[in-house]
Design a protein around this nucleic acid. Structure first.
Lengths: 248, 248
DNA sequence: GCAGTTTTTTCAGGTTTTTGCAAGATTTTT
DNA sequence: AAAAATCTTGCAAAAACCTGAAAAAACTGC
């Protein structure tokens, strides 16, 4: 294992987990902790991570979104891992915003070949530099609350594209209320996204099961796949399976 | 085994494995490690691989896409500070990409009220959460090299907007050659941006003064303002003032 | 084919980089 | 406050590197 390889592996780990431990890396990469510490310090000097006692934290573009700021990172990683199974070389994929979708993007191996459309600047930036993924960002008005591109122009652009798969998070999901959102504009955008995609997959932590909000996006049956961190035979998600969504 | 044979074999190995060790290649090709090292250095000079201690890595991923390590941050902050003087409440501003423009955005005080259009996902994200700035991201294909949105759709959208001021960085700037870029697509986008703006301001560290590249964007005289980190009476920028640009 | 030239390779040496270890300092946890 | 974990520093060994000179190979014009 060459030093630059080791260092870029460390950065990759950071991208996925947002944190690394010197002791873990030492075992995993079969080098002494001193070496890991030296690597971490070098990478910290280059500004690629933040060194802390015991390991390092990722710093993504200026404002450090560390793991602790992401809600339920472990669950989201499980979800992301399951969602990877839906992706195959050559696919055209449309991606929404949110930290769950971000977690998925971070798992993309470098040999995965995709064409990705997204309304999230964050997702676009995460994918920049990936050697085999072409990224199209659909532009619009960007707001702090949603962190995605909104507006009529986005809907118009979405009407012009056709993709194999839509991957998006959700705000509320309930057997009776269906998929719901708080923001009417988000509903409009998501409806347009669903129209553009042959298959629709929703990523959601189980905590959101049974919650609902004011703005209705669609019924559960309109989804093709629902992915949570729960095992697919968990009683909590059986009702959703009966409504027609494939559970992963 | 002839030298070109050996070298193309090395490149072949790299394509497959993404890495090679000098020691391995030495054994495999039955030549001394010195010869291998010389080969690797030659290929590295040609830009076909990245030489590292112990061997070489393929150029494809991770190692080349350095997470925007900001070059000359101090100079860029001086430039950004000067550029702030061009901005006033209520303005419509169009912003290009690049670290110099990012430095400017970070200086925006909370009470600054602007409407910002940008082709850079990074700029859009920097501005997310600013209480008094409305951000419109103009979408398109995003590439690793430029980190901005490219494509015909961007140019079309730019043709539909009209802003008070364009703020952008540059690649090459020279009294004779004017403003130049390495990428023809970037030139097209920047020309469209210039058309959309009443006034054009270019931010450039003084290091770029006197440099030129293959693709011409415009003459110095077509700029309204040129901002470098040098004092406005520095002899190095006087020639640009004579060509019609206001120097800050 | 052959003497002369150029290119390529190897080898020897001294230098630099990388890594692991140990000792003592520092931080975190109990 | 003591104990445990982690960090820093200095050092030494191993590996990799570079330089220049000499040997080997390939090429040149005659």
């Amino acid at each position: 294992m060459l030093k630059p390889e080791r260092q870029s592996l460390i950065l990759h780990q950071l991208n996925i987990h947002n944190r690394v431990l010197s002791s873990d890396l030492s075992q995993q990469l079969k080098v002494s902790e001193d070496t890991i510490r030296r690597d971490l310090n070098e990478l910290a000097d280059l500004g690629k991570l933040v060194k802390v006692h015991g390991g390092a934290l990722s710093k993504s573009y200026g404002h450090t979104t560390v793991r602790s700021e992401i809600y339920a990172p472990d669950e989201k990683e499980i979800i992301a891992r399951k969602a990877m199974g839906l992706l195959h070389d050559g696919m055209y994929v449309l991606m929404g915003g949110g930290t769950t979708v971000s977690a998925l993007v971070r798992l993309f191996p470098e040999n995965l070949r995709l064409t990705v459309f997204t309304i999230s600047p964050n997702i676009a930036i995460e994918l920049i530099g990936h050697p085999n993924i072409e990224v199209f960002l659909i532009g619009g008005r960007v707001t702090a609350e949603t962190q995605i591109c909104l507006g009529g122009e986005v809907i118009h652009r979405l009407s012009e594209i056709r993709v194999d798969l839509l991957l998006m998070g959700t705000t509320g999901i309930d057997t009776a209320a269906g998929i719901t959102e708080t923001d009417i504009e988000v509903v409009q955008i998501k409806k347009a996204m669903m129209k553009a995609a042959d298959k629709v997959a929703v990523l959601s932590i189980s905590e959101k099961l049974g919650t609902s909000h004011r703005m209705k996006l669609c019924e559960i049956g309109e989804l093709d796949t629902l992915i949570t961190e729960l095992p697919s035979d968990d009683p909590a998600i059986q009702p959703y399976a009966r409504l027609g969504a494939t559970i992963l």
